[in-house]
Design a binder for these strands. Structure first.
Lengths: 120, 120
DNA sequence: GGCGTATCTAACTAATTAGTTAAATAACCG
DNA sequence: CGGTTATTTAACTAATTAGTTAGATACGCC
């Protein structure tokens, strides 16, 4: 997982139009025109969103006559999830004693921000 | 979960500097200066990244003398994970028959992109 | 070949982002 | 008070993003 692959994935997800496109594609492959329909937005604008999703590896484009069907490729979402997974213990809240201890020593005794020479 | 909360969360995560800052904060609360250290980047640039993280709700800022300690608040990462979770079945690959069927009917018989009047 | 539908490219604009340096603010310390 | 350290704000620039409209391209059909 190179760092800018995650950049592309997360920034593709940072837009509600693009998340809605993914949600639609979760129901199945469809055309650009149908993807565009729910939005008050020109065709070219949708084409650009699709390019962003494609750069992130989240969609696959086919060719069928004058249509360029899009389908979901969720594999990169797994990479995003794996990255987030590292932080699960933080939102689940229950650190065990060792983790608490490590966190304290990391912050120089857990007493002060930088060093222990200052004393408030 | 309002849509633009997710926008803020994902776009905060779309930058490697900010992900590195979160990784550092996972080890414990620290100062702006220490956060800035690994990067070839001015102080104000780091302040801006912190503002983005703060807007996303990912960090909490304190005050201690002339320091403004940062600490991680991972709660929004749970929201991101929850959103991604909807797609897990896609990257795990094994759809059950019902899901396959639903996906096919959604795409008008699963045969064509738009309708069944065309026939290739 | 020419028409109609689907989609993309080009060229442009406005807003946002990521960085800079210089100066302001805040708080401790002697 | 005056100096030093930490951090933020202001003002600026360059690059990127999200949208637009107009025109090009691709393909099927008659």
């Amino acid at each position: 997982m190179t760092p800018d692959r995650l950049d592309h994935i997360f920034s593709a997800l940072a837009d509600p139009t693009r998340r809605a496109i993914l949600a639609r594609l979760a129901l199945g492959t469809t055309s650009v025109t149908e993807l565009a329909e729910p939005f008050r937005m020109s065709g070219p604008a949708v084409t650009k969103h699709l390019k962003v999703l494609e750069r992130a590896g989240l969609i696959i484009r086919g060719r069928e006559a004058q249509w360029r069907p899009c389908s979901l490729d969720a594999a990169p979402l797994k990479d995003a999830t794996d990255w987030l997974e590292q932080y699960r213990r933080f939102w689940e809240g229950s650190f065990d004693r060792l983790e608490e201890y490590l966190q304290e020593v990391q912050t120089n005794g857990g007493k002060d921000v930088r060093d222990s020479s200052r004393d408030k």
